[in-house]
Design a protein around this nucleic acid. Structure first.
Lengths: 138, 138
DNA sequence: GAAAACTACATGCCCTTGCATTGGATGTCA
DNA sequence: TGACATCCAATGCAAGGGCATGTAGTTTTC
């Protein structure tokens, strides 16, 4: 017979606690991702991964706006191949520019275009609104 | 010029804080999901969603072991169609049984088979091990 | 300085997922 | 009873993702 008591244990969490916490997080992230995806797609024609790329690119300080694809990958959650395609989609949509690096011709520099920054700034309020709704819903 | 100070603000988090927290969670969940997926696949031939289904089904008290697909859906993070297919895969692998409900012939009862419960119990330690590794890594 | 090892990005292939739809079963209302 | 809305699960389809591989460029090693 297991105990049902829910004491506020601050020590080592049990397996059940770790597992329940993980499952809850998994659900919450799925729900929030879906809500963001829908809102961004409907209101701005952006997927969640696409928005995340814009978010990272918009975060680099101006002047040093270019970013190597590898460095972008390190700041994201996508595999190299998925990121390559996501960037390609954004490029096709005219939201960013791709440029070869002169010093290392393997590398690819990526930079927000004017319309890319515009799109990001338009989409950010949607992103924050949905995010706060979801956080509040938990 | 923005402030770099990281005071332990307990009031309303700023947009930047909410956004950073979300991005960090997104990354962490992706990393942990990938680690779980790899370990479960390599050691037990299970995908993460498949394991989650087994986990839910194993959690229902014995005697009342059957579960309607709709109820399963409510406890998961998958869409109806994805769950339908995941259950189909588990069924093909012989890990669960599907049975029509007599009272409501639209519904489908799902129940862990012997080998399904065995597989789950084998996989659970792997799941917990990887989960604790990931939690520790944060 | 040539070969080998490594790195960065793109792409073919396959799998999982979600949306929209279908088909069958129930429930409701007149 | 018959028409209509609703509900449950399965499936066609297309999008997105990861793994393995391909290709080009760079570094290392001898």
């Amino acid at each position: 017979m297991q105990s049902h008591v829910n004491l506020p244990v601050m020590g080592e969490p049990t397996d059940v606690e770790v597992c329940d916490q993980w499952c809850a997080t998994l659900r919450a992230v799925h729900v929030t991702s879906a809500a963001l995806e829908h809102a961004l797609e409907a209101e701005h024609g952006l997927g969640l991964s696409e928005f995340q790329v814009l978010l990272v690119l918009a975060g680099v300080e101006p002047g040093r706006a270019k970013m190597r694809l590898k460095d972008l990958e390190a700041k994201m959650y996508l595999s190299q191949s998925a990121l390559s395609r996501t960037v390609a989609r954004l490029h096709d949509a005219g939201l960013l520019t791709r440029a070869a690096c002169e010093l290392d011709r393997r590398a690819l520099f990526v930079e927000l275009s004017e319309s890319g920054r515009k799109r990001y700034e338009d989409a950010l309020p949607t992103h924050m609104r949905v995010l706060r709704e979801q956080v509040a819903a938990v």
